[in-house]
Nucleic acid binder design. Sequence first.
DNA 1: CTGTTAGCGCTTTCAT
DNA 2: ATGAAAGCGCTAACAG
Lengths: 343, 343
Amino acid sequence: MRARRGRGERTTLIDVATRAGVSAITVSRVLREPEKVSPNLRNRILDLIEDMGYVPDQAARALASRHNSTFGVLVPTLTNRAFLSFMQGVEERVRDTTFRIQYANTHNCADEEKRQVRLLLSQNTAGILLAGLEGADGIHDLVRHANCMVVQVVDVGIKIAGSVVAVDHGAAAEAATRHLLDCGYRTIALLGGMADARGRRRTEGYSRVMQQAGLYDPDLIHHENAATTTQMGCRLLRRALKARPDIDAVFCQNDDLALGVLFEAQRMGLSVPDQFGICGYNDLDFAAVMQPPLTTVRTPLFEMGYRAADLMIRGADGDRLVHHSVNLGFELIERRTTRRRTL
Amino acid sequence: MRARRGRGERTTLIDVATRAGVSAITVSRVLREPEKVSPNLRNRILDLIEDMGYVPDQAARALASRHNSTFGVLVPTLTNRAFLSFMQGVEERVRDTTFRIQYANTHNCADEEKRQVRLLLSQNTAGILLAGLEGADGIHDLVRHANCMVVQVVDVGIKIAGSVVAVDHGAAAEAATRHLLDCGYRTIALLGGMADARGRRRTEGYSRVMQQAGLYDPDLIHHENAATTTQMGCRLLRRALKARPDIDAVFCQNDDLALGVLFEAQRMGLSVPDQFGICGYNDLDFAAVMQPPLTTVRTPLFEMGYRAADLMIRGADGDRLVHHSVNLGFELIERRTTRRRTL
DNA sequence: CTGTTAGCGCTTTCAT
DNA sequence: ATGAAAGCGCTAACAG
């Protein structure tokens, strides 16, 4: 007689079945395959379920069915707006499916990443979505041996295991740097935050173009080992200008940074874009309405999330480990923080 | 025919136990109460676990122990930076505990909120953290009958069930509005996004002060039913100015909005703070480095998350349903988007 | 359409 | 310090 003692023992399938005078499996079917139960009985049971406040126990369900309809999404940080757009894409695709998302934050830390993947694996998740992988040693093994879908969102060319949604960050950075050059800027600084795989690719792209132009100088590159913020943009600009006072443009690895750079430049009396050019990255919400509006590289953040979730869901549904890969593009949005091109 | 063949069936506790020549419970102990197993045996088993790549099945564990060390955090949106700070606070408190967090996004929708709470309940979570509750009907019942910790982050005075971390948003809005008045502004608009419970409190606070001053006018209040963005700030300012061209200051429900307002004001040639004052809300990262720096209300976002998680953890650990409540303050940060006070 | 029988992989409780 | 037995709440597989 396990009645609701204290806060009440949990109501189980059997409690409902007993009250309904049927067997447990019938109640179970009402929930999962209602069409296999006669309408009459079904409705009676449904009412009972409502009345008794029965909620199925997912752990038992997962254990019995060896199935789990939630999947984990690993993001390196929560503080980056770029990841927010990505997450919105994921959510949009997942809405109206029976899948659930479980976010985990790896704090840009390789060990934490590994720990989280292990945890997810131990929960028998339907799949794992890896965004902004730090690439810890051994994670490849973990992922390779996973018996669930694994989708990675990475840079083009960094193929690991499972399905992949890729963007060519190196090429995007090249395009941005070349644009700055085309506008007539010469001493172009690169400002960035913590360098993950994607960040490193961007730095490489920038360096390639600067080297080709014979303008490369390590003193032009400034990073701070943390998530990008607007305040960081201000600091980084001051530091860059101290190292090379003749800087006439900056390429920021994130629009957050670019926002700070614009404010700081205004404070210093630098006129944008005439004396000083700014190019951002990601085309975040505020970029279009800054004064002046920000020239930036638009990356398909939302779509990356959407496509990644799509691969995930299609793979998990078919219960087969589909391996797909999609490569999404980017777009340089020329606005008013860079001057009209002279070339 | 369970698809996951070929990638290997899951390694279980029994597999490890068999290889070690011990019983399952011993392996289980090695993982949970290592001190109860002799060092020799323990190390041998630990090695085996590593070798065989064994990862415990959380579902089985949760089912057998009727315990679950993950708790759900419901946030209304992922696109609001205020919630990000909150989430960071939660994570900070949870780090280095055995608890795990599962985020769920209710999309500011009452039904979704109810669905998510139900889902969480059905997972037997250690607890539920409710932030920015929409307050769906029936959710009180759900929460009241939950046999797990429930912590809510709400406005002072909206007491529901479980433990509460509160902030007096009404008083904060009053302070902000009064400050604007003290600076000599008279026609003060209120700009906001989707009005949740906290938003409504802020609107009430603003209205009270304006009414007392005899300056209240519904035409000064402008909302858009979506998450706040910088672009929305621009649109809202234009709309407000169309309704009342004599507006000389705005109180924005979020700094995102204030950023847009500043840019738009600059575009219109309004000089801030002389002709036009701006006060934000939340003191987000960029507020301090805007040009001019933004006057805003600082709310203890991070701390709210931290304290809420703390209540959660302390409650779940003690396995008793502690009911606590803490009330956190706010602070008006006077910077340069409002002129020096004349009163 | 409904029921019976076996577990899923782990932890509890009670022995030894 | 280690083990045996008995489930946790549910679903798969096969009846009928």
